[in-house]
């Protein structure tokens, strides 16, 4: 018995030793779930083009921030930007990677995608539990000609902390003083009403299963699941449909030039065609990394992705960054990150 164990132990040692010497470690990144599909697409294509491997894993934005601070990954990713003070304390730099958006989705019999319209204060009142019926006069007022049933509204929110929630409640705080004072903003908040689904997928599943429900998911989930999304009134007072074009408009109208360390949340963006709940994903890296070569490899990947990865991003319903912003990011790398 012992003999078999010692051979097994020797085998284990052999495996471990062989493994350590096998190859130089690949670049590792972790963080927001939102960018996981596009990162894994970019990474697969990048490894085909150059042979370099970038391993990105979704552990959540909070996890991304925590892990880059703990130094266990080469780059972190978050849907919630860090302000310059926090970045400086941790010695981190920050830049955007890709743009997406959060859309309201509903389950009301007989209503087609894009046909129901919302304003920001209306959504805030629904999620505060102040509007409880679909035929409430305030909903009817912005939806002339839409047959709204006399049915209860069930609010569906995220149960896990998430960047999607952060952008959603950030927007609600900007348009509703009551939301701002009562609930506030964060990756998870104390919801006054509703049920929580785990992940975008959980929210999508609940909204599909519960008649009369309203939730919020990222665009890709609403399109892939063929859900009934709503149009939104933006800061310019125009009703816009969620689409790559309206997300792009929001990103383009945002004032990146004056944002130190790209600290900018692009919800409620100005501009006639802007989607009001567009969201940016941010990458976090050390300005003076322990291992400069690894950071250099990571930056080479992002340079490739931002310049050559636009088609892949669009195919997955993400919005690539505008060219001007990419130039600004590359200048930031040269000035700030010693890799």
């Amino acid at each position: 018995m012992l003999k078999t164990f010692s051979t097994r132990l020797a085998l284990a040692g052999f495996i471990a030793a062989g493994a350590v010497s096998a190859q130089a470690a690949d670049i590792t990144g972790a963080g927001a779930t939102f960018v996981y599909p596009v990162m894994s697409k970019w990474s697969a294509d990048y490894s085909q083009a150059t042979g370099n491997k970038i391993n990105y894993q979704s552990i959540g934005s909070g996890g991304g921030i925590a892990q880059i601070k703990a130094g266990t990954v080469d780059f972190g990713s978050s849907d919630k930007p860090l302000d310059s003070k926090e970045l400086a304390e941790a010695g981190l730099g920050q830049f955007p990677s890709v743009i997406g958006g959060v859309v309201p989705v509903v389950n009301i019999k007989g209503i087609e995608p894009g046909k129901i319209q919302f304003t920001g204060p209306l959504l805030a009142d629904i999620f505060l539990g102040k509007i409880t019926k679909w035929n409430d006069p305030q909903i009817v007022a912005v939806n002339a000609g839409v047959a709204l049933p006399d049915a209860m509204i069930t609010v569906v929110h995220r149960s896990d902390g998430s960047g999607t929630t952060f952008n959603w409640v950030n927007y609600l705080s900007k348009v509703s003083p009551e939301w701002k004072s009562k609930i506030g903003e964060g990756t998870s908040v104390q919801w006054p009403v509703g049920v929580g689904g785990k992940g975008n997928e959980g929210v999508a599943a609940y909204v599909k299963q519960i008649p009369g429900s309203i939730g919020y998911v990222e665009l890709a989930y609403s399109l892939q699941n063929k859900m009934t999304y709503g149009a939104m009134q933006n800061a310019a007072g125009k009703f816009v449909q969620p689409s790559r074009e309206s997300f792009q408009a929001a990103a383009a109208s945002a004032d990146w030039k004056n944002a130190k360390d790209f600290f900018l949340i692009i919800t409620n963006a100005p501009g006639e065609g802007s989607w009001p709940i567009a969201a940016t994903n941010f990458i976090l890296m050390y300005k003076q990394p322990k291992d400069a070569a690894r950071s250099k490899n990571a930056l080479a990947f992002f340079k490739w992705a931002l310049e050559n990865g636009k088609a892949q991003a669009e195919a997955l319903d993400f919005v690539p960054l505008p060219d001007e912003l990419v130039k600004q990011i590359e200048a930031y790398w040269a000035a700030e990150i010693k890799a």
Binding site: A16, A19, V20, A25, T28, A30, S40, N55, Q57, I59
Partner: peptide, 18 residues
Amino acid sequence: LLFTALNNQFWSVDMSGP
């Protein structure tokens, strides 16, 4: 495993990495 081995989208035999 999510907080220890993480995950890896590539083939890896390196026990000291994700």
